[in-house]
Simulated assay, not measured.
Amino acid sequence: MLGGIGTALDLIFWILSIIAFGMSAWALFHALRTPARAFAVAGKQTKKLWTIILSLSTLFSFASAVGYFGIGLGQLNIFAIAAVIAAGIYLADVKPAVGDSGKGGNSGPYGPW
């Protein structure tokens, strides 16, 4: 019975690690595509700093995800949790702020006109 619980928990943690990697990779991809000027206009940290933070976040979350196959860190740990927090902060706070900085002023309630 105990082996079944351990296997189910391993599967859940592996799925969470894959989700964390996807979230970190998505945040990194967005940060790389966003112009550096947008970060300054939005009043956020520099693009260079966010790129470094999100690169490390993606690296640690990837290492945690493949760790279940005996290659990486092996399990969810403090680095994987920090990676999720960093990517979450970027996606919840920075991404909406820098995304709005490139919009023009001639848009109506249903889009540009």
Rank of each mutant, 00 (worst) to 15 (best):
G3N: 10
A8I: 03
A8H: 05
L11V: 13
W14Q: 14
W14D: 01
I15H: 11
I19C: 05
I19M: 04
M23K: 13
M23E: 08
S24I: 09
A25E: 13
W26G: 03
L28C: 09
F29P: 02
A31Y: 00
L32W: 04
R33N: 08
R33M: 01
P35Q: 07
A36V: 08
A36S: 14
A38G: 12
A38P: 02
A38K: 07
A38H: 13
Q45R: 10
Q45C: 08
T46G: 13
K47Y: 11
K48F: 11
K48C: 05
L49E: 09
L49V: 12
W50Q: 08
L56A: 11
T58E: 10
L59C: 10
F60S: 15
F60N: 13
S61R: 15
F62P: 03
A63M: 15
A65V: 02
G67N: 11
F69P: 07
G70I: 14
G70T: 11
I71N: 06
L73N: 10
G74V: 15
G74P: 14
G74D: 12
N77R: 14
A80Y: 11
I81Q: 11
V84A: 12
I85M: 06
A86I: 02
L91N: 01
K95H: 10
G99D: 02
S101G: 01
G104P: 01
G104N: 03
G104Q: 01
N106H: 06
S107P: 00
S107L: 00
P112H: 03
